[in-house]
Computed example of a mutant assay.
Amino acid sequence: MTSLSLPRPRQYRRTPVEIDVTVNGVLNMIDGTISDLSEGGARIDGASMPVRSRCEIHYGGQVVYAVVMWAEFDRMGVRFPYELTSGPLYNALERARGPAAAPVQVFRTSRPSGFGRRGLR
């Protein structure tokens, strides 16, 4: 009997960004652009390293450690072993997400009295 596993939803919300970074591998440093960022990982365009390799992402004086999860010729996806919670890269993520709009609540006391949207009596 074969057991089928259902795909798990992503733990973090991905946000499209455009952040120029430097990726430091074991043997080389590559300039790239983060195009998709979350607290748990990123997609970096313009840089590629072998899958399962470890690297450092340099941005704004901060170093973020990452593990390459998938790679193509000109881009790669990395996972952060330590969740982003502070620093310049986290601040850029928060700026890209923008202010969260609070849901508007309409209470009975603030509604116009009468019938319909025009308040006809």
Rank of each mutant, 00 (worst) to 15 (best):
T85D: 08
P9K: 14
T33A: 02
A66F: 05
R10C: 03
I44V: 11
V68A: 05
A92R: 14
G32K: 01
V64S: 10
P50H: 01
A66S: 06
R111A: 04
Y12F: 13
L6K: 14
Y82W: 02
T2R: 15
A66D: 00
P99V: 15
A100Q: 07
G25A: 05
L93P: 04
R75T: 05
E56K: 14
Q11Y: 05
G116C: 09
T85Y: 09
Y59F: 15
M49K: 01
S110E: 10
E39D: 07
L6G: 09
Y90S: 11
P50D: 01
A96K: 09
R43M: 07
R95Y: 14
E39W: 08
R43Y: 11
A100T: 11
G40C: 05
G77A: 09
A47V: 08
D36L: 11
R14Q: 07
G87V: 11
T2K: 15
C55D: 00
L37G: 00
P50M: 02
G60W: 14
R79W: 04
V106N: 08
P103N: 02
R10W: 02
D31A: 14
D20W: 10
E94H: 09
G25W: 06
S86K: 12
R121I: 08
L89Y: 11
L89W: 09
T85P: 04
I19H: 01
E39G: 03
S5T: 12
M69E: 00
F80H: 05
G119K: 00
S86L: 06
T15E: 02
S38Y: 13
G60D: 03
A101T: 14
S5D: 05
M1C: 12
G98A: 00
G40H: 06
R111M: 09
E72C: 10
W70H: 15
T109E: 08
F80D: 00
Q62I: 11
D74L: 08
A47W: 04
R95V: 15
T85A: 10
R117P: 03
V106I: 15
M76T: 02
P103M: 03
C55I: 14
Y59D: 00
G114W: 08
A101W: 12
T85H: 13
R79A: 08
Y59C: 03
G61L: 08
Y12I: 06
M49S: 01
F80W: 07
R79F: 06
T85S: 12
P99W: 09
Y65A: 06
Y59K: 01
R52H: 15
P9F: 04
R54W: 04
G40P: 07
N28L: 10
L93S: 03
H58M: 08
F80N: 01
